[in-house]
Amino acid sequence: MTGMSGVIIEPVTGRYMHLEIHGQPHRLYWEEAGPTDGSGIPLVCLHTAGSDGRQFRALLNDGDITAKYRVIVFDMPWHGKSSPPAGWQDEEYKLTTEKYVELVCTVVKALKLDRPVAMGCSIGGRVVLELARAHADLFRAVIGLQSSAFVQHYFDITWLHRPNIHGGEMSAAYCYGLVGPEAPLEHRWETLWHYMQGGPGVFKGDLHFYSVDGDVSGTLPEIDTSACPVYLLTGEYDYSCTPEASQLTGLPDVSSG
């Protein structure tokens, strides 16, 4: 849509919803694009650890996709424009499998989405495996981007949250190498900016799920891929979730390509 000369207004809307998650009131921000009359397949997008829904800016603006899909991107609590719940100052933020799954299912039900596709990157790529296993009734398919069953800590994540080291600078230093060397500078640095804007301790708290609590390797064989197909896309420069980590040994009926 164009108005004043040179001004482009994106076909993306952003709104807030108020809902209870883990028994606590939350004000959650989400963006969406595509048909809202039920004609599009809902596609719920889950951002990575330590960042927010802006990661899906290109997808929300891709007309080929939004012609067929209602693309929905929400900021997890503590991320982006979704604040932490009241009392956060006395809490150490730690994402767990249980909380993460509940969050996604709560949002899907709140928006009355009809068996959406769930697509997530990194921690999001992990949790979609658990959604496929435990909630195939809610999701018609899942897409894992940089998806792994488990990745053990390979560096001390407390560097991400200590007062004498800038958390934003440290988060960006970590993610700097997760971007491929040929990624366009503009997109590399916008992506890093989002990580730099993360709240204190949030990236670290997300990695608790990634590298401590969220090990799904033992339950992969329980995923019924005929009820909820699993699609995986993994880039080779991500040294955190390598192509080998995305092999997902035990997942039924995996074909790669």
Binding site: Y154, G177, Y239
Partner: peptide, 10 residues
């Protein structure tokens, strides 16, 4: 891949 970054090489 995985030779492009100090942390990757670590």
């Amino acid at each position: 891949p995985r030779h492009h970054d100090v942390m990757a090489l670590i």
